[in-house]
Simulated assay, not measured.
Amino acid sequence: MKTTIGIKQEFLAEVAHSLGKILADEFVLYTKTRKAHWCVTGPDFHSKHLFFESQYNQLEEIVDDVAERIRTLGHFPPATLKEFLALTHLTEQSREKNDSMGYIKELLGDHESILIHLRENINGYVTALHDAGTSDYITGLMETHEKMAWMLRAHLE
Rank of each mutant, 00 (worst) to 15 (best):
K2D: 12
K2L: 13
T3N: 08
T4F: 12
A13F: 02
V15Y: 00
A16E: 02
H17K: 09
S18G: 09
S18E: 05
S18R: 06
L19V: 04
L19E: 01
G20K: 00
K21D: 05
L23Q: 01
A24Q: 02
D25S: 08
K35A: 10
V40Q: 09
V40I: 13
V40D: 12
T41Y: 11
G42Y: 13
D44M: 12
D44A: 14
F45Q: 06
F45M: 08
S47Y: 03
H49A: 11
L50D: 13
F51E: 09
F51C: 06
S54E: 14
L59V: 01
L59D: 00
I62K: 01
I62T: 06
D65H: 00
D65K: 01
A67M: 00
E68V: 00
I70Q: 03
I70E: 02
I70M: 04
I70Y: 03
T72K: 04
L73S: 05
F76V: 05
F76D: 09
P77R: 00
P78A: 08
A79G: 11
F84T: 02
A86W: 00
A86Y: 01
L87S: 04
T88C: 10
T91C: 12
E92S: 10
Q93K: 15
Q93S: 15
S94L: 14
E96Y: 11
E96S: 15
E96T: 15
K97R: 13
S100L: 03
S100P: 07
I104V: 14
K105W: 05
E106A: 15
G109S: 14
D110I: 12
H111P: 07
H111E: 07
H111T: 09
E112I: 14
E112Y: 14
S113C: 15
I114T: 10
L115T: 07
H117Q: 11
H117E: 11
H117L: 09
R119S: 15
N121K: 10
N121Q: 12
N121C: 06
N123T: 08
T127E: 10
A128G: 06
H130M: 11
D131E: 09
D131A: 07
A132G: 05
D136I: 04
Y137N: 00
T139M: 09
M142D: 04
E143I: 11
T144W: 00
H145V: 04
H145Y: 14
H145E: 04
E146W: 02
K147N: 05
K147R: 08
W150D: 02
W150F: 05
W150M: 03
H155F: 08
L156E: 04
